[in-house]
């Protein structure tokens, strides 16, 4: 879980950097998208690798959940939560929300089969490049689409707020002195990822970034 989780965090970091280019005008994200597409087979190898990572991470996550529920089949009449968090307890659920979102996200911005009115903008050329910026902007001008993305990114925030500190512990990089700091940094980083990703749909929804 920790190894694939760490690699997926690397992926969402790069993905976020690319996506934040929407804040730098029409051309920024269009140039970025064009560069990505010009890589040809490399981008496909990268996509397949990411999908494989997701598949392994999800398979392990489900296996872990099944094994752990089988190790602990009975429930106490009363059980006090001592240290764990809602984020830690809901990892499988936030993970599954992210999985459903991932499929939707791919159908939306990669395969272009949902919200076709908005994504058709990518067929138009602006300064000789496919207009990815308007495709994103038109999509997020819809409150429904923005809310879906915001909910999914809240799930991502919860997943990361446990996952980030958890992989440091699993890699054995923690010790008594670093534990609290690692947990705090993990939560702060999760807040950063959550807010940064949420900022994109909200910026278009509230016309802070105009198409």
């Amino acid at each position: 879980m920790a190894v694939t989780g760490f690699m997926l965090v690397c992926f969402i970091s790069v993905h976020l950097l690319g996506n934040l280019s929407v804040f730098f005008g029409v051309d920024a994200i269009n140039i970025y998208a064009e560069k990505l597409h010009s890589l040809g087979p490399v981008v496909w190898i990268f996509r397949m690798a990411i999908l494989l990572l997701f598949a392994v991470h999800i398979t392990f996550g489900i296996q872990l959940t099944v094994e752990n529920s089988s190790a602990s089949p009975e429930a106490y009449a009363i059980k006090k939560r001592l240290k764990t968090t809602f984020a830690a307890e809901s990892m499988i659920y936030t993970g599954l929300i992210i999985l459903v979102f991932l499929l939707y996200h791919l159908l939306h911005f990669t395969v272009h089969v949902v919200h076709t009115d908005a994504v058709s903008a990518v067929q138009t050329l602006v300064n000789g490049r496919p207009d990815v910026f308007t495709m994103i902007g038109k999509s997020f001008n819809s409150a429904f689409i923005s809310i879906v993305y915001v909910i999914a990114m809240c799930a991502l925030f919860l997943h990361l707020s446990h996952g980030l500190q958890s992989f440091i512990q699993t890699f054995g990089l923690n010790n008594g002195k670093t534990q609290d700091t690692v947990t705090a940094i993990g939560k702060l980083a999760a807040i950063f990822y959550g807010l940064a990703y949420i900022a994109i749909p909200l910026a278009f929804l509230f016309h802070i970034v105009k198409i």
Binding site: E67, S70, A71, K83, T84, Q165, T170
Partner: peptide, 11 residues
Amino acid sequence: GNCTNHYECQE
């Protein structure tokens, strides 16, 4: 079961 770093044990 497997450890998923809840830290309930320590408490």
